[in-house]
Design a protein around this nucleic acid. Structure first.
Lengths: 186, 186
DNA sequence: TTGGGGTATGCAACTAGTTGCACAGCACGC
DNA sequence: GCGTGCTGTGCAACTAGTTGCATACCCCAA
């Protein structure tokens, strides 16, 4: 399981509360490892018990205390262990593909609409990634260490979203041609 | 949840037992929706209770009866409903990206080795997909309906694996350059 | 003849992830 | 002065997915 490890990486960059971490997961890290705030709170609690992180209770005026977590030695050790461990290729769960494969069992036009919707969502996210790339990494060849690694992960996101947009376009073109030819050489 | 729907799509193409379905998931459909035999057995049982599938018990000499499942009217209806439903973009869980992002907290060389391993696995799967494409779909422009949809899903797999191979290569090149320059302009 | 691999089903226990809700007060706009 | 949305934590109940094992018999090779 990598949620612990994603949290460790994120907390190492900057300590923070569960809530804050959830926000970060909605943005950067979460593009590569999705998690809800519930999951994060429970995992942080467990990690605290394992001494992978330490919590500092910060009293606040009015509202309840917040807990600022930071990585502990145990966590750094665990992270090093995990980084060297051989992992399995990610298990894929891509329901849009399942829909395309089953399109002829329903209304293929409706499935094409769904593909078009996803295409737009992926294109939007691709724009977001490209904007981050331009703004935060204007000169990739000058990058080293952590900054380079952050950039490379972003590059992965860009490649993935681009591939998805192109695939959606291919699917749409083929399905629309097929539907137009419906009365023809079937 | 799409496991039910993936099973419906697969059973519609050809009825089969839970065991057989698990085999199919190891191959074709499973490249886009991973599932273990346990999950499939439990889901089939539930789908039977919902009258989405019907089970035909086939006695066998010696070994226990097998249950051949096929799609029922309820299942076809449910599948049509699901196909038209707007779905969320897939939640991503790509732990290799988390490892790359955290590489500087451990041994970057070891992480690069891990990226290389994954690169080879993806390249292998890409070869498998390309072989299927050549063998089963020699003339894509002549495809219609279900065959076309199967082809398009395969195309998605090819694009995804290709993007991953290229990304791994980019990561490897950049990380190796960075490590070579280690004593230099850091 | 013994052990490994394939066909075939399934329970039990576990881990992981989701959804809905509750509490608590702040700031801001209408 | 009221509703909305943000920060912040967390419980409870649920659904989904994993792992290990058990049963049962087959075939084939060492």
């Amino acid at each position: 399981m990598a949620l612990e490890h994603a949290i460790l990486v994120s907390l190492d960059e900057r300590p923070g509360t569960g809530y804050e971490l959830a926000r970060r997961f909605d943005k950067s890290i979460g593009f590569f490892w999705a998690a809800t705030h519930q999951q994060i709170y429970r995992t942080l609690k467990r990690m605290d018990e394992l001494h992978w992180v330490t919590a500092e209770e910060v009293p606040q005026d009015g509202r309840p205390d917040k807990k600022v977590y930071r990585v502990d030695d145990g966590g750094r050790q665990e992270l090093r262990r995990w980084l060297e461990e051989a992992g399995e290729p990610a298990t894929i769960r891509h329901d849009l593909s399942v829909k395309v494969r089953g399109a002829s069992l329903g209304d293929p036009g409706k499935v094409a609409d769904e593909v078009a919707r996803h295409r737009d969502q992926h294109a939007e996210r691709l724009d977001v990634f490209r904007a981050i790339e331009k703004k935060d990494f204007p000169d990739p060849s000058a990058l080293h260490g952590r900054r380079l690694h952050q950039y490379l992960v972003l590059r992965g996101g860009i490649r993935a979203e681009q591939a998805l947009v192109e695939w959606c376009d291919e699917v749409l073109a083929a399905m629309r041609t097929d539907m137009r030819e419906d009365g023809g050489a079937r």
